[in-house]
């Protein structure tokens, strides 16, 4: 595959481990939010660790919010990066990118809050990111807010409530778990994303 991956920084501090995870499957990912560099990429990743309000302010300050909305190539939001794709989030009552319809809600207090650890993602039939994986593979989750289980859902996870652990609308993909921290299953999801035709 002829992949020119770009990771958009700024929505979190974890792009170092994500770059390494890409390298382990043979993809050298550049970290940049320069519109020309991002525009020339074949695949774009929006990672995220942090709080939604802080992350959106960072993206807006640098005009990256507008850039993301205009992308035509495959885009993968990870964790907070996936949540930012929606219209809004309960976290800090934040207006997000609005690339996907719906609102990210706070997870219930039971059984625990936040949702932290390894849980199963039940992939829907035909979910391309889960190609070649067990239909109930384990992934690593660390989050307190989650996306609605609606039309864009590609996988479902249960923790106090059922939520979308993977989403897709056209070329826009998102995963709530951290593929870069999910051992072999995570490697497969990243490789599947990079196999998505541009």
């Amino acid at each position: 595959m002829n992949v020119r991956a770009v990771i958009i920084p700024g929505s979190g501090a974890n792009f170092g481990s994500l770059r390494q995870a890409c390298l382990r499957i043979g993809v050298e990912a550049e970290v940049s939010d320069d519109p020309a560099r991002v525009g020339a990429a074949s695949h774009v990743i929006l990672p995220g660790v942090g709080a939604a309000g802080h992350a959106m302010r960072g993206l807006r300050t640098r005009g990256v919010d507008r850039l993301i909305r205009t992308l035509g190539q495959p885009l993968l939001g990870i964790c907070l990066g996936m949540q930012l794709l929606f219209e809004g989030s309960d976290e800090d009552d934040t207006e997000c990118l609005g690339v996907l319809p719906g609102r990210v809600r706070r997870l219930p207090a039971e059984p625990r809050w936040p949702h932290m650890g390894w849980n199963r993602a039940h992939a829907l039939p035909g979910a391309a990111l889960f190609d070649g994986l067990d239909a109930e593979a384990w992934f690593y989750f660390v989050h307190g807010y989650a996306a609605p289980l609606d039309a864009s859902a590609q996988a479902c996870t249960d923790y106090g409530t059922a939520f979308a652990s993977a989403v897709r609308a056209g070329s826009v993909h998102g995963v709530q778990f951290h593929p870069e921290k999910s051992a072999a299953a995570g490697r497969r999801v990243l490789a599947n994303f990079f196999s998505t035709p541009c």
Partner: peptide, 9 residues
């Protein structure tokens, strides 16, 4: 720390 990185961190 929670305000900057989120409680989960």
């Amino acid at each position: 720390l929670a305000a900057r990185f989120g409680s989960q961190c």
